[in-house]
């Protein structure tokens, strides 16, 4: 994770894409999905993406394991985008997954979707 942090700190560009109410502060010229995952997701989904983050034991519903190839393969990229942007209820999942569309712009969510695909299915 330290390397990922170092990588993102090196990123200094500011993108111009906007998304819904978010005025858009892109993470970089190209959003860094791994760094965004570290910033917004690992608290619950874990540093390894296994659903065992530091908050997981305090959550009534086990956070999704993003390294579960079977579960993740059953979801389209559009569904993953939707659940990140609009929250769990948007795909009939837990309200404990918040809607991140106010914190993240479109390119950042796309970068997270791409990172989820790496986590689940490239190892």
């Amino acid at each position: 994770m330290r390397n990922q942090l170092k990588n993102i700190v090196r990123v200094t560009g500011i993108g111009a894409l906007t998304f819904l109410a978010n005025p858009g502060i892109a993470f970089g010229a190209e959003a860094d999905g791994a760094a965004l995952y570290d910033m917004y997701c690992v608290q619950c989904h874990g540093t390894q993406g296994n659903g065992k983050g530091i908050n997981a034991s305090h959550i009534n519903v086990q956070p999704r394991s993003h390294i579960d190839k079977g579960e993740m393969s059953a979801r389209s990229d559009a569904e993953l985008f939707k659940v990140i942007a609009e929250g769990g209820p948007a795909i009939n999942k837990s309200v404990l997954m918040p809607a991140w569309r106010h914190n993240l712009n479109e390119s950042e969510i796309e970068a997270l979707v791409a990172h989820l695909r790496k986590l689940c299915c490239e190892n």
């Binding site: 540093t47 390894q48 065992k52 530091i54 997981a56």
Partner: peptide
């Protein structure tokens, strides 16, 4: 409880994260 940016203080135990 986990610091201002918890990710700096997380240890992966192999079976989940701890502080």
């Amino acid at each position: 409880p986990a610091g201002y940016f918890p990710q700096r203080h997380i240890i992966n135990t192999g079976d989940g994260d701890t502080l």
